[in-house]
Design a protein around this nucleic acid. Structure first.
Lengths: 159, 159
DNA sequence: TCACAAAAGTTGCAATCGTAACCATCAAGG
DNA sequence: CCTTGATGGTTACGATTGCAACTTTTGTGA
């Protein structure tokens, strides 16, 4: 049987091997994976949405009127992912596009009445999940996690 | 031009919309993505390895002798991912398999001399990346991040 | 005004992934 | 034994992804 150390500093006694479970990038990826999956289960069961669709909808709802490129920048998604998510949302009739009058390369995207209602519903879902999550992590744990993430965000502005 | 808010802490003013950049699951996913990509670039450029292959190799090297199922459990990867990674490592002649004598469903996996050398090299790479990362995050930032991740690990034992 | 580079968005294609089905083997019970 | 269920590992297949190439439109400088 083997113990699973929690802090990488106390791990890796010898020099020849590395404990994966103590390796920060792995731990971070794993934690993110757990949380993302949990939350994804919620909006997938509720609305059959994918992760890119959720992010896209969240961004459109946040800005009311926005272009595809801006969505990508704001939600850290590649052009193609955004493009496909937008098409999916359009097929659900949750959004509409309007070609810009002065620059016809650009499309302005807005929520339909239907999309707006679903967006509000998803916001509620997101808030309640976040609250539950923070409660599980505890005041201290949640604050430490957010501070740690902030440190990453601060150092790595543009991925 | 587009504005991308960077400080999530002072976000979410109203109730009707949600600031994606302040939403914990999103922030966590984004942070993890940044770090994972950075580190992946290193071992991909150095050895042309994929993420599943890196994780698999790291696990084998950590335990010396291990089965595919155990690799999956220890590195949070699905059976199929492990199976494919093992095959890839075997084709590189970095590992060998030995069918268990008493239970012929099981295969024991070990590093070859070549695999062992590359493993040690990758361990060095991993350690130096982790050190650089922690330095960038600062003593406090790194500690907070690890404590936050620990909180998640503690609540969600088995994903 | 014309050629050329850059930007917005889409599409084709190859690689990766996850689910489910599958094969082989073993353990337990009748 | 012989069936049945579980386990270790692989494969088939459809879905998702990322990259590069593409179309359309705009800006710019000769």
């Amino acid at each position: 049987m083997m113990t699973v150390p929690q802090t990488p500093s106390e791990v890796e006694p010898d020099d020849a091997s590395l404990a994966l479970e103590g390796f920060l990038p792995y731990r971070l990826a794993r934690a993110s994976e757990i949380i993302s999956r949990q939350f994804a289960t919620l909006y997938r069961e509720r609305h059959g949405m994918t992760r890119p669709e959720w992010r896209t909808l969240a961004t459109i709802g946040q800005f009311n009127r926005i272009t595809a490129t801006e969505i990508g920048a704001h939600s850290s998604m590649h052009k193609t992912k955004v493009s496909r998510a937008i098409r999916a949302l359009e097929e659900r009739k949750w959004i509409t596009r309007q070609v810009d009058e002065t620059d016809r390369r650009i499309e302005h995207i807005e929520l339909t009445r239907d999309g707006s209602a679903n967006y509000r519903d998803l916001v509620t879902l997101a808030r309640s999940y976040e609250a539950k999550l923070m409660e599980m992590l505890g005041q201290t744990g949640a604050e430490q996690l957010m501070a740690g993430i902030s440190a990453i965000e601060k150092r790595f502005a543009a991925p």
